[in-house]
Amino acid sequence: MTDPAMNGRPAGGGPPGEGGHPGDLPVLLPSALSRTGPETRLRPAHAWLLCGLAAVALPAWAQAGSGASSPLEVVIRWAPLLLTGFAFNVAISLMAMLLGTLAGTGLGIAMLAEGPVLRRLAWTVTQVFRNVPWLVLLFFVMFLVPFQVTVLGVRVPLPDWVKATFGFALPVMANVAEIVRGAVRSVPTTQWEAAESLAFTRRQILWRIILPQCAKRMLPPWMNVYALIAMATVQASIVGVTEMLTLTAQVHAAEGGRPELFAPLYGFALLCFFLYCYPIDRLTARLERRFETR
């Protein structure tokens, strides 16, 4: 986290006005911040972190014994396999985001429904999936969803990574639902009145007038959710999905579990995720600033 003066205005998701206010006492700032999600306004200097990450590998390299291959050689040798694992992480995160966004949009709209039953049900579902650890959801899905399903007489196998995708889609769904609900609610009611006066139906108003207006507002927090889910995909290694972290551990074991390989191998995983998520984070922050000053 950066200095408190800079954090006076939250850069994270949610409409302006939520979270820290200029008048907040410093003592209130930590709690205000925690509600706005991770700090996205990093300084360009943080790019130096990259160099730092690269440096992680170097000390271990120096320690390498003469007989065994150097840590750098090990990383390079295994890089194609590890990157395949990383591609899995990316695939899982993208699929989870796609499914979660579709379901979350529906859920968010259901939270705005006129009927109290549907509205309360959607609200409860959202709250449940938003307020439990992602790993717990992942376990639930892994052990509750069968390894194959039969659809119209055709057996569809459900490999672990597909199940993990569902597991990650659930928290995405709940978070996207909140984003959609918040964005729709942030549009002035006068827009609804004007559209109603023109004889638009509720559904038309939502899809043609309200949601298109919020699309811009929803983009930064949505990307924020994506960056979080992309990083969270490594949790799939706990339930045995062959993604990057699992492969890294296997590679480490295959190389005899030499302690000096620990930092370079996991440093490589760290670097991959950082290089993937940091640009998303920067873009989110940039979009946020642009939409604020429109």
Partner: peptide, 21 residues
Amino acid sequence: DKLALRRTVGMVFQQYNLFPH
């Protein structure tokens, strides 16, 4: 039938309420 009514009656507001997008 609110929609039938509102096809018959037009309304203009103090704050214009145009669709900004």
